[in-house]
Design a protein around this nucleic acid. Structure first.
Length: 423
RNA sequence: GCGGUAUUGGUGAAGUGGUUAACACACCGGUUUGUGGCACCGGCACACGUGGGUUCGACUCCCACAUACCGCCCCA
């Protein structure tokens, strides 16, 4: 084994790729119904796009970004997430212009890159499917996005979904809460885990998420964001919940839920699932939230936005197996002798042009072996041609399931097969 | 970036410091000449992740590196 793929990357081989196509097709169908259109942006962007949007204290920027200088000395980075590039495109193409319907709704899919330690369902090159909607601050839109995420996962048959929501409030509420957390945790500083000591400096909200046992004890009595929302933020959240109730969406408010990236405010949500594929631990498959302010951050006009992203690798671990995505082979052409071999080229081309999937042996194998292949490939029919058939302008068609055989006109092979199909 | 476990053929794997690295599946070929799914027979690891070291001798012991997986960080 001389060469191996870079650490944390995957070859998606035939068989596996059909599952990807399936997921992507479902995504497209569902998003179409909600009138979201696909947008495709570059896989790398100017480094600053991510630095600006994610916040330079975030781990993504400080240690996980694949960044590099190109030959023109431009500082670029492979995208670690999808939102920043979409926002950049939104601003650069002036999609906020009056001629565009608001909200401006898009979805994307594709590879993302983070320099981190690989684990199951977690690669350095991984894939996300995400959606974004710009230009409306409406809570109804928040609900549409959440509903669409649910519709997508439901359509894929994901079971045991749990919807967790929270709000970070508007910037004022968030700032007040931030201060309250600092005030609360500072006296405990010495008792906090090393990780949380750093979090206290950089991002106190993250302490709420700590897995350290001792931290959890301290977190128990920490102030809740819900007590620091100003009136408007609080009302907004209550209204949002009532909309979810109207839809009979089963959700849980998790006031300790936080976000990795700095740009979120108001509604945030995560869909979690418990599955044997992850040792029955609860994992997040889809996460998103509102990011009013991000468009401005990247140089656009004041524009509210909201979206979600989901990791395809994780998703695939959840849906695997059950699906039957095999594609049938209509015809396997069996050739006997050199003349048949020569004639096969034209016959195959004719079958395919007529819409049949068709294949043959290219290793000069014996008749028996060719039938064996046809069997392994699950061919519906074999068409056998040898010297006899060529002389009489016939082809021997065999139904592989029933074993029935009969000769048909070789010249009208495709039409004859269609006739048999219809019976 | 930190800690742990693992690494044998196409696949699942057994295995011992010392002549030919089990077994199964898959695949290929054959059981007389143009036919599948069963059965039987046969073939299929110049080789045990890579590089060093210890040893008379290592796949089996030690070290480093690589990769995978698990946990932490972080996150999808």
């Amino acid at each position: 084994m001389r060469y191996q793929k870079p650490k944390g990357t995957m070859d998606i081989l035939p068989g596996e790729s059909s599952k990807w196509q399936y997921v992507e097709n479902v995504a497209k169908n569902v998003f179409d119904r909600y009138r979201f259109s696909e947008i495709r942006t570059p896989i790398f962007e100017s480094y600053e796009v991510f630095e600006r949007s994610s916040g330079d204290t975030s781990d993504i920027v400080s240690k996980e970004m694949y960044d590099f200088k190109d030959k023109g000395d431009r500082h670029l980075a492979l995208r670690p997430e999808g939102t920043a590039g979409v926002v950049r495109a939104y601003v650069e193409n002036k999609l906020y212009g009056p001629e565009h319907v608001k909200p401006y709704k898009v979805w994307y899919k594709g590879p993302m890159f983070r320099y981190e330690r690989p684990q199951s369902g977690r690669q350095r090159q991984f894939h996300q499917i995400g959606v974004e909607a710009f230009g409306s601050d409406s809570p109804e839109l928040d609900v549409e996005i959440i509903t669409m995420g649910l519709a997508f996962l439901n359509e894929l048959g994901i079971k045991n979904l749990k919807v967790a929501i929270n709000t970070l409030g508007d910037p004022e509420s968030r700032a007040n809460y931030h201060q309250a957390l600092v005030d609360y945790f500072t006296p405990f500083k010495d008792q906090l885990s090393d990780d949380s000591k750093i979090r206290l400096e950089k991002n106190p909200l993250r302490i709420l998420d700590s897995k350290d046992k001792n931290d959890k004890e301290i977190v128990k009595d920490a102030p809740s964001i819900l007590d620091y929302l100003n009136d408007a933020s609080s009302k907004r959240f209550e209204y949002l919940k009532s909309l979810l109730d109207d839809l009979d969406i089963n959700y849980e408010v998790d006031p300790t839920m936080v976000r990795g990236l700095d740009y979120y405010n108001h509604t945030i949500f995560e869909f979690m699932v418990t599955d044997p594929a992850f040792n029955n631990k609860e994992i997040t498959v889809l996460a998103g939230g509102r990011y009013n302010g991000l468009v401005e951050e990247l140089g656009g006009p004041e524009t509210p936005g909201i979206g979600f992203g989901l990791g395809v690798e994780r998703l695939l671990l959840l849906i695997d197996d059950q699906l039957d995505l095999t594609t049938d082979l209509d015809v396997y052409l069996v050739t006997i002798g050199e003349k048949a071999e020569k004639a096969s080229v034209k016959i195959l081309a004719g079958l395919r042009a007529a819409g049949f999937s068709a294949d043959k042996d290219y290793l000069s194998r014996k008749t028996k072996a060719q039938f064996k292949s046809a069997n392994n490939l699950n061919a519906k029919y074999t068409v056998t041609i040898g010297d006899n058939e060529l002389e009489n302008d016939t082809a021997n068609v065999k139904n592989m399931a029933t074993g029935e055989e009969h000769p048909v006109s070789l010249a009208n092979l495709a039409a004859e097969l269609k006739g048999i199909e219809e019976k």
